[in-house]
């Protein structure tokens, strides 16, 4: 082996080996093996739910609402979710952003036709309500067209969101029963208000 090969052989081999290893690692995404980065909350995200009825609707509204609130607050959806999941008092900006976000979610779902008519939710709503049996039967007997003419889903939801004490609700997220009770009461109030306004307009 001549002197040049003695001097250069091993360094050249080392350079080739290092370039090969680092190149293969990078070529297979080595530089970007990192945790998922949160998506831009201001970019519209397609939201779906495996659940049907009120549960599915609620999930979609919450997912869109959190995105909208995060966009307003200029944080990621995940950051806001983690912040809201921690115990403690919520500030006005968070509560206002979430309320506006939920209302925007209602508008968005109405605009893209994914908001179900009130008649599709009535049966499920009646099951969990504490109305007397006679009234429940009477309402169930009403044709869908009458229900949909009397109650607009977006109107009821918007009123319910306005009535919800979001600050209190966010501070007691751990109690599922309290959560359902608060939402149920707000929706019931909203339905009554909506019907009252409808009658007032008719008269």
């Amino acid at each position: 082996m001549n002197a040049t090969a003695r001097w250069a052989g091993l360094p050249v081999l080392a350079l080739v080996l290092v370039a090969l290893v680092v190149g293969v690692q990078l070529g297979n995404g080595g530089g970007s093996y990192e945790p998922l980065k949160p998506a831009d909350p201001c970019a519209e995200r397609e939201v779906t739910s495996r659940a049907e009825g009120i549960e599915g609707l609620t999930e979609q509204l919450v997912l869109i609402g959190i995105d909208e609130a995060a966009c307003t607050l200029q944080v990621s959806r995940e950051e806001l979710t983690l912040e809201l999941a921690r115990p403690g008092e919520r500030n006005d900006a968070q509560v206002d952003a979430l309320r506006d976000g939920l209302k925007t979610a209602v508008t968005r779902m109405k605009d893209d036709g994914t908001l179900p008519p009130a008649s599709a939710l009535v049966d499920e709503a009646l099951e969990s309500s504490d109305l007397n049996g006679f009234l429940k039967t009477a309402i169930r007997a009403l044709p869908d067209g009458v229900i949909d003419a009397a109650l607009k889903t977006d109107d009821v939801l918007t009123r319910a969101i306005d009535k919800l004490d979001l600050r209190d609700l966010l501070e007691n997220l751990t109690s599922q029963a309290d959560l359902e009770q608060q939402i149920g009461a707000a929706v019931e109030e909203a339905v009554k208000d909506s019907l009252r306004d409808r009658l007032r307009n008719l008269i």
Binding site: L10, P11, V18, V22, G29, G30
Partner: peptide
């Protein structure tokens, strides 16, 4: 000297490789 220098370079290259695994 060349052997030692190459060894140091290989250790450095290996550590860069360990810093960027694709999975």
């Amino acid at each position: 000297e060349v052997e030692i220098a190459v060894g140091c370079f290989l250790v450095a290259g290996g550590l860069v490789g360990l810093a960027i695994p694709p999975s």
